[in-house]
Design a protein around this nucleic acid. Structure first.
Lengths: 219, 219
DNA sequence: ATGGTTGTGGGCTGTCAAGCCCAATTTGGG
DNA sequence: CCCAAATTGGGCTTGACAGCCCACAACCAT
């Protein structure tokens, strides 16, 4: 898989070629996020990226290779974002609330949904062979939360009785499901409530010492 | 919208016609659930339902009208299922666990996802005008949970401090998100953990009197 | 400078699905 | 029994998109 999409990039392309490929990829990601995979056809992408038809065939021989590259690009983006300093590796309840606050304030949450989840849902039933790549990305995403929760346990911020895997899946599921409901309703409320409740649940495992600090945020 | 899909059914069709239309609809719903909207084309549906091409045009003039009818059909199904005796209007924590148990045991959860959520995700970004119908269905679904939670409050089973709307969105989001993650991973674990944690959160609002009865099920 | 390699441009074709039409058959009321 | 409306069958056309090809231009190493 990587051989068809990644391995070629660093070796055979010059700076200009790589820039062109990156431009196509970014426009493809944006178009797919805004309009969906199906609506992102050859001509639309060509006009958006300012390239000609054969370039798409050159850098992305098939649509499947393009979609796969977009998945990798979006996965890279969302994982990098979650690993950024801003969330301090999710080592506190505050960082979780900061995270939720970002997506609740983000306009496109209830317009286009999750950059990875929407894409996954749209194509998971098609014959495009991208499931493994998506599964990998979601596993890493879960691990970010799980690692954070385990760190909270080691720091004595939440009880060791909490199940980090289970809570990580709750956070990620509430996020994905809330995004879908918000998108369908064109209203951020479902996402806001789901994330709020999910993080409140993590907070029920907060240790007595930490509760004193964090309690003002409860309701 | 109803005028194009529903209003015609009870008036102008005979028994045989209605049976044919129902057969097309059921096969369309099954095919769309299993293979997706895009893969469910004219010919495949014609062969599956054992009807000829012009019948599709007769009962469902456009693909949009077919998809809309399938959405209504699936919404009806899932809402009826949730309103069935089995879950006693979700008036207890046990009924929530019974509900989660059903989908965790259901083979197709991690193969095809949610009958309504998968469909919604697949087509929400296309030009098909089905968003309102979907939003309506999800609102009713949320209301089933919310009404149940409010009933639990009136029965003194959970605290009046709980926010039924928020908890309803948590349950529905955890379900939808968990379904997506399970489908992508081809593993029921994400759904199981997300639902488990979501219901555990509802349980944190259980009233002292009720806790004595329900505590054996905690962990 | 020059030839070969790499990148670029636009046009072309095969495929596939949606929507439509006309002819044949069946049904149901009078 | 007959007529009109409803239902059925299969084929056909149009439109859209993915993948491909050939001619041209730019770059770079020798």
């Amino acid at each position: 898989m990587d051989a068809a999409t990644e391995a070629r990039v660093p070796q055979k392309l010059t700076d200009k070629g790589r820039a062109t490929r990156a431009r196509i990829l970014e426009h493809a990601a944006e178009l797919i996020y805004a309009k969906g995979v199906h609506a992102t056809n050859n001509e639309v992408l060509r006009r958006a990226a300012g390239v000609s038809g054969s370039q798409l065939n050159h850098y992305f021989p098939t649509k499947e290779s393009l979609v796969l590259a977009v998945i990798e690009w979006q996965a890279e983006r969302v994982l990098t974002f979650h690993r950024s300093e801003r969330f301090t590796q999710f080592d506190s309840l505050d960082s979780l609330r900061e995270w939720a606050g970002f997506y609740i304030a983000y306009e496109r949450s209830y317009q286009e949904g999750c950059t990875l989840g929407s894409l996954a849902s749209e194509i998971i039933k098609t014959d495009l062979d991208v499931r493994t790549e998506l599964a990998n990305a979601f596993e890493q995403w879960r691990d970010i939360f799980r690692d954070g929760l385990e760190r909270m346990q080691r720091l004595g911020r939440i009880s060791t009785e909490a199940d980090p895997t289970q809570l990580a899946y709750l956070l990620l599921s509430a996020f994905q499901g809330g995004m879908l409901l918000a998108q369908v309703a064109r209203d951020i409320a479902p996402l806001k409530d789901a994330l709020r409740a999910a993080i409140d649940h993590v907070q029920t495992f907060a240790m007595p010492a930490a509760v004193g600090v964090l309690d003002p945020f409860r309701h």
